[in-house]
Amino acid sequence: MNWQSEALCVFLDSRAGTEILTLQFLSYDTPANTEYKRALSKLLTIAFCSRRTVDVFHDDNDARIVGLDFTPPNISPVGPAIHNDFYCITGSNIPDTAEVVFEAPPLSVAITPDLRRPYWVLIEQLSATVPAGVCEVFLRAPGWQSDRVSVTVRSGSPLTARTLYPGRPKTEPYTFVFAATPAIQSPGNGPVSADPVLTNRTNFHAIVRHCLANLLTLTESLLRTDNFEANIRFVAIFDTTQGATTANALVGQLDPNLIEALRDRLNGFVGRYAEKADIVFCITANATHRRPNGVAHDR
């Protein structure tokens, strides 16, 4: 891309070779036209900087750009790629033997997902063997390969709230949240203490993966019926900045060894992360009270 003389020149690699297309800012353009060209210029710049493929529209025998289309690949990474954080990719008809390949020539790292569904794969913790920096990611199985998507892998802190799968694109999709509980309430509304679950992120990731595998891959097929699972939003919250307060005590102990979810606090907690959950899985590492307490309510 090249800006000069109040015009933008775009050098576009296409099947026919390199095409030179232009976007000229003219003195007689209406304000709306100028704004439209500004929008086109920004989107072209975004595509260039992120190495995304675009279709650029122009008239026959005319190099003036009139529009563009971000050609969608057939897979979609969910959120940034961060070492030791969850990493998920969505798609369609993903084979159950698919592996995730990160490629930054000459390096190529293949990772076996920890959970595979036809529309989604999940890596429990992105390995640091994937080099930080720009690379291409794609899915690969015998006889099948997805499109490639350019991503930037980085080290650093994993996200505190991570969308694993966005769910149906509608207002308030049915949402499951896996929340590491910052605090535990002692029996009989007693004092609150810190939950050790927040000291072991790796263990939290393993438990979330275990829960998802139980929900989506075992004999019980309720969530798989009519592909309902593909409409569910899955979010994981692991926030070490949350203190051991009453509002953060999402589970309470019941003697002698039961642990129960304190349901009246769950909406307030997940709401801080802009989530509205239908089901919250409270994940605790309580050492003494380890038997979940089931509660049934009439409607």
Partner: peptide, 28 residues
């Protein structure tokens, strides 16, 4: 409210809108 990943953007001088495709997967 619609929440999801931006899968595609289409903008054309002849159209009155820029089309934005949002969803969990490219096919949904």
């Amino acid at each position: 409210c619609t929440t999801g990943l931006v899968q595609r953007i289409y903008i054309d001088a002849n159209a009155e809108n820029a089309c934005v495709f949002i969803g969990p997967t490219p096919a949904s």
